[in-house]
Simulated scan of single mutants.
Amino acid sequence: MQRGGCVYILTNKCHTVLYTSVTADITSRIWEHKNKVYPDSFTAKYNCEKLVYYFAYLHIEEAIAAEKQIKAGNRQNKVNLIQRMNPDWKELYDELIKE
């Protein structure tokens, strides 16, 4: 049985740090970031808890491939990706949990 996944980008309050990752359960994973479940993690250290981009895939392997492609790009590529989906850089977590 195949399991889907999401690639996502978090940022901090000032949008100075971008964090890209992949997960099979985006609502739970973002909740963990917001609540600093792993206090020694990169996202906890740099206060990356604002979800500004996510994209769901049918297969986790597709999400992992997309994550690698995003991470291989420079910051401007990530900014462009975010702005295409979320031009105002608004918090998307609230919309996500309503789905």
Rank of each mutant, 00 (worst) to 15 (best):
K71H: 12
V79E: 09
A72D: 11
E62G: 12
C14V: 13
R3W: 11
L81G: 02
S28I: 10
A56K: 11
N80V: 01
N77D: 15
T43Q: 10
K78S: 06
D40K: 14
F55R: 13
N80T: 07
R84G: 00
L58K: 14
I82Y: 03
H15G: 05
K50P: 00
H15Y: 14
A44F: 08
I26W: 09
I30C: 08
E62I: 00
L96I: 12
A44S: 15
E91N: 15
E95S: 11
A66V: 02
C6A: 13
V22I: 12
S28F: 12
W31G: 01
G5K: 02
T23A: 10
F42S: 06
Y19K: 14
Y46S: 02
R75A: 02
K78Q: 12
K13L: 11
L92H: 08
H33K: 09
C14F: 13
K78G: 00
Q76E: 15
V22Y: 05
I82G: 07
K90S: 10
V37D: 11
R75D: 01
W31V: 00
I97F: 09
M1E: 13
K36E: 15
D94S: 12
F55P: 00
H59Y: 10
T27F: 03
E61N: 09
I70G: 01
K36A: 12
S41F: 08
I30S: 04
A24S: 15
C6P: 00
V17Q: 14
R29W: 09
P87A: 09
H33I: 08
K71Y: 00
I64W: 01
R84E: 14
N74Y: 07
L96W: 14
L58Q: 12
I97A: 06
E62S: 10
K13S: 12
W89D: 07
L58Y: 06
K13G: 05
H59E: 11
Y57T: 07
A24L: 10
K50F: 09
Y8N: 03
L51N: 06
I64S: 01
L51D: 05
S21W: 06
A65V: 09
A63K: 02
R75N: 02
L92D: 07
S41K: 13
L51C: 08
R75M: 05
K78A: 05
L81T: 04
I70K: 02
K45S: 09
V7E: 07
D25Q: 13
